[in-house]
Simulated scan of single mutants.
Amino acid sequence: MYGSGSSDVRTLIFSSENFEFWRIKMVTIFKLYGLWTLVEKGITIPDSKKKKTAKEISIEEDDEKMAAILMKNAKALGIIQNAVSNKIFPHIANADSAKMA
């Protein structure tokens, strides 16, 4: 409801139809959460950090920045995963696994 103060944003579930409509809504959601630049440009993780998880990153200034970026990346990925049908999900899950290897 408009003006209710709720921070929940409902996404249209993409099931391979009306992609352009879904895409416009998704861009708006990413901009709302301050994630659009990250989604559009991606992130680069230095080789020394690739083997670490967000929990393993030490609490130093550069590492704190990297942890914040990784958390934003996880948030964006979660939004995307929740906005696709079960039919589409395996395709994006496999693509994400390939990037992580």
Results as ranks from 00 to 15, higher is better:
52 K>P: 04
9 V>C: 01
96 D>S: 11
73 N>Y: 12
12 L>D: 11
85 S>C: 07
76 A>M: 06
91 H>I: 15
89 F>V: 02
79 I>M: 01
75 K>E: 05
26 M>D: 02
89 F>G: 05
81 Q>I: 05
12 L>P: 15
43 I>L: 00
27 V>E: 10
5 G>Q: 01
63 D>Q: 11
83 A>V: 01
12 L>Q: 07
13 I>D: 00
88 I>R: 01
32 L>E: 07
45 I>V: 09
75 K>R: 12
5 G>L: 02
31 K>V: 00
77 L>I: 06
63 D>H: 05
87 K>S: 09
29 I>Q: 04
29 I>K: 00
79 I>W: 03
20 E>S: 13
94 N>Q: 15
57 I>Q: 08
20 E>N: 10
80 I>C: 14
79 I>F: 03
75 K>P: 01
47 D>I: 04
3 G>P: 10
67 A>V: 02
28 T>L: 07
49 K>D: 14
69 I>H: 12
78 G>N: 14
69 I>M: 04
77 L>D: 07
66 M>H: 02
46 P>I: 01
90 P>L: 09
54 A>M: 09
3 G>D: 06
25 K>A: 15
1 M>S: 10
92 I>R: 04
14 F>T: 11
11 T>Y: 08
40 E>K: 11
62 D>P: 02
60 E>I: 09
45 I>S: 03
17 E>I: 08
22 W>K: 09
99 K>Y: 12
56 E>I: 06
62 D>N: 10
101 A>Q: 13
35 L>Y: 02
43 I>P: 06
32 L>K: 12
48 S>F: 11
16 S>F: 14
51 K>H: 13
60 E>L: 07
18 N>V: 06
83 A>I: 00
97 S>A: 14
63 D>L: 03
101 A>I: 15
67 A>N: 14
32 L>Y: 11
33 Y>T: 03
18 N>E: 15
10 R>M: 10
9 V>T: 04
69 I>E: 06
79 I>G: 00
8 D>T: 11
68 A>K: 04
37 T>G: 15
64 E>A: 08
63 D>I: 00
51 K>T: 15
93 A>N: 12
79 I>C: 04
101 A>T: 14
76 A>T: 11
26 M>H: 07
82 N>D: 03
20 E>W: 08
